[in-house]
């Protein structure tokens, strides 16, 4: 049975803990790193066994609060920062959006998906009503025709390959592998830029992406996905 004394002690402990957190964080609670994301330690990273691209540059979240197709389409056309459809950022680069400085972070996911909730949560950034930009570079040893970009996202997302919009998903949805696929496209020899805008309403937010070959099996012919290395 819980006594009044125990309740009192518990209340004191909670208050003390809260104060400690506040003091330690100097206004922002320090959080452990994202459990599924790592800082890259190699210049390039091959896709995983199922072809999922695991290295991405992620921009800290931008406020956004509508998942409908009309709103998302209008939203991704807005210029939040200069050259948002052509920029090849590096880890640590910063942009200013609506007067707020946001940083790009290079990250390797340990899973098939990139958990944006983990990403934002670890940085103490909002996870609700937000838009994330993600960029990666796929380095192909040769031209690869008849491939599809296969994506899943929580929630809405729009995808571009080499500047062309190729796939999109709308409304509040869960990330499911190959939830949306592009028409057949050609990956050119060398660097191909894959860019995504992922918009979340509430709860989980993540995405996954891979290429499927002409037989709709995971594409593995490319040497790896690179970010920094391709830009240097």
């Amino acid at each position: 049975m819980i006594t009044f004394r125990q309740l009192l002690l518990s209340a004191v402990a909670v208050l003390a803990g809260s104060a400690l957190i506040a003091i330690t964080a100097s206004g922002q609670e320090a959080r452990p790193p994202a459990p599924t994301l790592r800082s890259p330690t190699s210049p390039e990273k091959a896709p995983d066994a199922d072809g999922f691209i695991q290295r991405w540059l992620l921009l800290e979240p931008i406020p956004f609060n509508d998942l409908t197709e009309i709103a998302v389409r209008a939203g991704v056309k807005k210029e939040y920062f200069p050259n948002q459809f052509t920029v090849l950022p590096k880890d640590g680069d910063k942009v200013t959006v609506d007067g707020k400085e946001l940083a790009w972070h290079a990250a390797d996911t340990t899973l098939y998906n990139v958990n944006l909730y983990h990403f934002a949560w670890a940085l103490n950034k909002p996870t609700t009503n937000v838009l994330f930009w993600a960029v990666t570079i796929v380095n192909c040893p040769r031209e690869m025709p008849n491939v599809r970009l296969a994506i899943g996202s929580n929630a809405a997302s729009v995808w571009w390959v080499n500047g062309q919009e190729v796939a999109s998903l709308f409304n509040d949805r869960q990330t499911v592998i190959d939830d949306g696929v592009s028409k057949r496209i050609t990956l050119k020899k060398g660097a191909n830029v894959v860019r995504a805008a992922v918009i979340n309403g509430g709860g989980a937010t993540d995405f996954c992406a891979r290429f499927l070959d002409a037989d709709d099996t995971p594409l593995k012919g490319f040497t790896g996905t690179v970010v920094d290395a391709a830009m240097k």
Partner: peptide, 16 residues
């Protein structure tokens, strides 16, 4: 349950 909760009429909760 998939989707977002606790957003009233904007919630996307659905059972899978």
């Amino acid at each position: 349950t998939h989707g977002s909760c606790c957003r009233g009429a904007d919630s996307g909760y659905n059972i899978r």
